[in-house]
Write a protein that binds this DNA or RNA. Structure first.
Lengths: 350, 350
DNA sequence: TTTTGCCGTGTAAGCGCTTACACTATGCCT
DNA sequence: AGGCATAGTGTAAGCGCTTACACGGCAAAA
């Protein structure tokens, strides 16, 4: 009882080709026939069969996204950008979420399944050789989001710049002894942020104290978690030279660090200034100065990029790099008004 | 150059039917043939074509979820439950997110597209007549999540109970003048929570003061936003009898209320105790007592329900109702330890 | 030895749609 | 009047796979 184009063709006294034409790019069909077919289709409650359509067209109307740790606010925001952009097209979004980075490979395989999608997004996954091989063999559109590989399209933010901006901010507010609380170096963004930290120090002519860089070896979320920030801060506080400014490679780590600071009877920004990274929702509420990434825009741009790849498959590759921006709040400044002013003072542009 | 079963059949010297059998329920194929086919397939780098498979099987390996306001932590958690459960099956998840409740209908139409999905989840959408009609006409599996309609499968939490528990908690801690900060009554959960509030008052023999129920008329997220909580609290503070206990229908509203309280020079729990609803991440950080919903579990159960519907289509309907649980934190108690103990004291079971 | 049955495999008919190609009018140009 | 576009429609061949049915062969049963 599902109604097909045959039913319509029968009832309207035309051929299935004509019915199909009506429902497609309307290649030359007379106005009469068209409206007649449309009417019959409406009467019968016809709906095109998505799968059959894809098969015949040799092109799916689905695009896939492989996302590790969907729980993360960062990804959800990007997803919004994707969705809002895709909603205006014929494409629907298949979401493959991996709980850990190890699960990414499995989900990627599912996503790369032939005939499934017209294109795919890969989020925040380190580009191992094996992955690059698989992705390069994929014949459809592909955009990396928040990760990078030469020769593949990507939309990323400039983590090096972000790390640098955060560090420079601390220097400018008068910090003398800077420290870095870093996530697991397996994470490429973490490494880039660290490089930015070092670069800012170097260009300010400051010496770089290796004991002031605490690196997580945590596997859970690659060290992007509160506990790892807490532990790192404790370690810093126990060191011989206590820092007066701390950059963390994520907000959650920064929040852990703040807890350690508070427990030590100290406070931010008075004793130690703290900068996070990401601008998650909580950052606002705890007044955390942070580096905001243009997440929504990343989603939009990634989607646009994918769509244009689908349209013109042979197109040259493009790597889009967006700049993060500094959001100044309580943990580095006494001037920003207390309490939870909604957004903080935004410095720089996204 | 994409390799099909014909290529394999040729090279292996068998028919396409045999190749197909190897890749399916392995209906009677000799061990020799099987391993030979598998080998050839591996050599050629064969991958089954997802779309063709769905068409031939008359059954998609995709399930869809229609989700309003994906930004919401609540939905993301449920999604995790869905994904984790689906990951173990052959099904992939198509996500249709609507930015507003009005967009739900459009996204629902896309999701209901014939031949697209083997089943669909509809999240948190009021069941208007039109929607019920469309959903009932859908011939595939269907599970409502966080919304309800008799005759359709659903997984919900008991909002009435949640409202009641929150209210009773305030009464037990000695509050005398209870108030309710309520979201837009278009939202069914909000109404249910209010009913719970009223019921708890009634069964405690308290009188119900209508002026102590402030209802949002906000359209933005149905009044589930910080501003609406803030405004409501201001209104309560300006009233002739100031409440000493407030239940909010969501954490974000509660957080707005807390701000209003602080700005009025008062504090929680000393002057006014506050209970939220949802247990979003921020709740922990501001020490908000709240009602936690078993979000992840909802996702798991919804997925399981859908899967079993797909397996046995004629099965009887089931409405699953999960109980929320109270999480006691600073805003209603001085005994819970200060600062941000991670989880709060959990009372009741999820 | 003949019968019965089952196992392993092939043949072919779809699934519901798109689209190249062919065909028939019709209108227009010479 | 004949020739030639051109617009509108139909015919049929797929898209890559699944699966009902048929068939040959061989082992067990008679």
């Amino acid at each position: 009882m599902p109604v097909t184009i045959y039913d319509i063709a029968n009832k309207a006294g035309v051929s299935i080709a004509t019915v199909s034409r009506v429902f497609n790019g309307s290649t030359r069909v007379s106005a009469n026939t068209r409206s007649n077919v449309l009417k019959v289709a409406a009467d019968l409650g016809y709906q095109p069969h998505a799968t059959a359509r894809s098969l015949a067209r040799r092109k799916s109307s689905i695009v896939s996204a492989v996302i590790p740790m969907l729980t993360n606010y960062f990804f959800v925001e990007i997803l919004r950008g994707l969705q809002d952009t895709l909603a205006r097209t014929e494409y629907d979004l298949l979401v493959f979420s991996a709980r850990t980075l190890d699960e990414v490979d499995g989900q990627m395989d599912r996503a790369l399944q032939r005939g499934q999608a017209a294109g795919i997004f890969v989020f925040s996954s380190p580009m191992t050789g094996e992955r690059v091989t698989k992705l390069s063999a994929f014949n459809e559109a592909l955009v990396l989001v928040d990760c990078f590989h030469p020769g593949l399209d990507s939309v990323t933010t400039n983590n090096l710049e972000g790390g640098e901006v955060a560090t420079r901010h601390l220097l400018e507010t008068g910090c003398e002894r800077l420290a870095l609380i870093m996530a697991n170096p397996e994470s490429v963004p973490a490494r880039d942020r660290r490089d930015g930290f070092e670069r800012a120090l170097a260009s300010a002519g400051r010496e770089f104290d290796p004991s002031h860089v605490v690196t997580s070896t945590d596997e859970d979320h690659h060290g992007y978690n509160e506990q790892s920030g807490y532990d790192a801060m404790r370690k810093l506080l126990a060191g011989k030279v206590c820092p007066d400014g701390v950059v963390a490679t994520s907000d959650v780590q920064a929040i852990g660090a703040l807890r350690a600071i508070r427990e030590a009877g100290l406070s931010a920004p008075e004793d130690i200034r703290v900068v996070g990274y990401d601008d998650i929702l909580i950052a606002r509420h705890v007044g955390l100065t942070t580096i905001r990434q243009p997440m929504y825009e990343m989603g939009v741009m990634a989607a646009e990029r994918l769509l244009s790849q689908i349209e013109v498959p042979t197109q040259t590759r493009a790597q889009t790099v967006l700049s993060p921006c500094l959001v100044v709040r309580r943990t580095t400044s006494n001037d920003v008004g207390s309490g939870e002013e909604p957004s903080g003072q935004i410095v720089g542009r996204a």
